[in-house]
Design a protein around this nucleic acid. Structure first.
Ligand SMILES: [Mn+2]
Ligand SMILES: [Mn+2]
Ligand SMILES: [Zn+2]
Ligand SMILES: [Zn+2]
Lengths: 138, 138
DNA sequence: ACATAATTTATAACCATTCTAAACTAGAAG
DNA sequence: CTTCTAGTTTAGAATGGTTATAAATTATGT
């Protein structure tokens, strides 16, 4: 409960006041050794488990969106009824298990180069993301 | 207004009764020379424009889901607040313009082979989809 | 024509997300 | 330290896409 200095500094540097809610969310998101994927619902549960004071749902949404805008989180393109977020903000790709609703990273080093032999006049590429749908086999 | 025979046959072959609602939706979806992408909202507007009798929203959802289950439509994985569907059911990929919310096909012949050098024990690959986000440049 | 299961429909329910506007707070200034 | 103010949090309402419900309608086999 306090190498918060790092997070306070990060928040301040981003023009975000280091409130106790934001610091708690930073701890949950950015303390773990490994990056991870989450839905807002899952995040709410994690926060409830790891934090004593309650954070309102609106604040969680606000904070996640603020962090996304600052580039501290990525939103992942999955056909789903809810958004998924990723604390891994590097360019990378995903396996997605539709039954388990589980996301697994594929790092750029684990995938061959992707050649797109089609251009659209007046449009430029912002990102290229590969989604590999998998199923658990019996 | 009647090479419906084709659609009636198709529906019957799928175990779906050829109601006038389903036939109308078939006409809208499968008559065009080119495949296309649509959201349910867009489809509702197209149906209103091209059809005289009204089709309830519930029926449109029901039918689209039935057609998807039969493999006549694909649902496209886009991070968005609504589902997109595709009358192109072949394996292929997409450009996505987030501002215009516009999808453009990338056929398999227009993209190099995708090599995934990572396996997950107990899981097998069902599909590999590439989403290329683009922006209109000024 | 009749019977029956499938289908359609209006409407309510659901649920993730966003909005609102009032209460609270961090940080700056005096 | 006190005051001021913009930024933040919050509960609750609103939104919007989608799904569920259950009654009316229809397709189809007999
Ligand atoms: Mn879906
Ligand atoms: Mn979104
Ligand atoms: Zn990831
Ligand atoms: Zn397509």
């Amino acid at each position: 409960m306090s190498n918060n200095l790092e997070f306070i500094t990060k928040l301040r540097a981003s023009g975000l006041r280091p409130t106790k809610q934001r610091i708690s969310i930073c701890e949950v998101l950015f303390s773990p050794a490994e990056t991870f994927h989450f839905s807002i619902n899952e995040l709410v549960k994690i926060i409830e488990r790891k934090t004593n004071h309650k954070i309102s749902l609106a604040t969680i949404y606000n904070t996640i969106h603020a962090f996304k805008k600052k580039g501290y989180l990525k939103e992942i393109a999955i056909n789903s009824d809810q958004s998924y977020f990723d604390t891994n903000t590097t360019d990378h790709h995903h396996f997605y298990d539709e039954q388990k609703k589980e996301l697994i990273d594929i790092h750029n080093s684990e995938i061959g180069p992707i050649k797109i032999n089609k251009t659209i006049p007046g449009k430029k590429i912002k990102s290229v993301e590969v989604l590999v749908k998998v199923e658990t086999d019996y």
